[in-house]
Design a binder for these strands. Structure first.
Lengths: 129, 129
DNA sequence: CTAGAACCTCACGTCGGCGTGAGGTGCAAA
DNA sequence: TTTGCACCTCACGCCGACGTGAGGTTCTAG
């Protein structure tokens, strides 16, 4: 399977896949002529990488986690890393939730001055909380 | 109130505060001698900015949201922006949750091969899900 | 009055995850 | 055989939120 198809299936750019290889995250075999040759499991691997990127992990952290996917052998250090990253994500979930709730609060306020008319309504200006 | 105290109270660096001013997020008055002069409400403002930064909003987005805090007047456009950012955050919450759950899954696997011994245990190598 | 914090303004450095050419090669179809 | 698309390797560009000096001023305590 060539790089273009992997890109499409995994929903990433070709450039991204080359970058992943550069970082040692997904190392493809090479066919005659030097073209990258991916397997089906590589597609899953890429999807997993995307998942972790989306969670804000830097490539080095991912690099330390991936070997576990291959071997399913966990050293103590690896389990600790996994847990550490999980906790980080959990913390970010807290931050994001706080931010969302705060925005919801503001949107609630805003609704009072916006919703019923298409034009502008003259408001009372006062200090917020 | 001078910049150092604001930094400490809001839990950010002095540099960050100057950067916020550069971006138009928090514009402090100036005392004789050119030193920045902040008010108590500026501290709250900075905390709010931090909240939004922590949620991944870029400074331009924050810049568009802040006027609402001052005036409590919401144009339609502003309400839309607020809602848009809220939805973004919601989407990220989904991503992060997925990632966390996946990691929990892996940690569960890892526990089987790590927990009871300090040394390494010879495992069976097979393909993961 | 004087030391030494704390402040000021440039202005360049950083880091990560790619985007984006430039210039050349491989491969399948007509 | 020739088109033409997909692929290849450099290698520089980018953007945002500051960090980090450099070199000078202001404020406060003794």
């Amino acid at each position: 399977m060539r790089i273009g198809e992997v890109a499409e299936r995994a929903g990433v750019s070709v450039r991204a896949l080359r970058y992943y290889e550069e970082q040692g995250l997904v190392v493809a075999a090479r066919g005659a002529g030097g073209q990258r040759d991916y397997s089906d499991s590589d597609v899953e691997r890429v999807k997993f990488i995307q998942l972790l990127y989306a969670a804000g992990l830097p490539s080095k952290a991912i690099l330390h986690i991936l070997p576990f996917l291959d071997t399913l052998v966990a050293t103590l250090e690896m389990t600790q890393r996994l847990t550490k990253e999980r906790d980080r994500i959990q913390a970010r979930l807290h931050d994001l939730t706080r931010a969302r709730d705060r925005l919801d609060e503001l949107i609630g306020f805003a609704a009072q001055y916006t919703e019923s008319s298409t034009a502008q309504c003259p408001p009372r200006v006062h200090a917020p909380a």
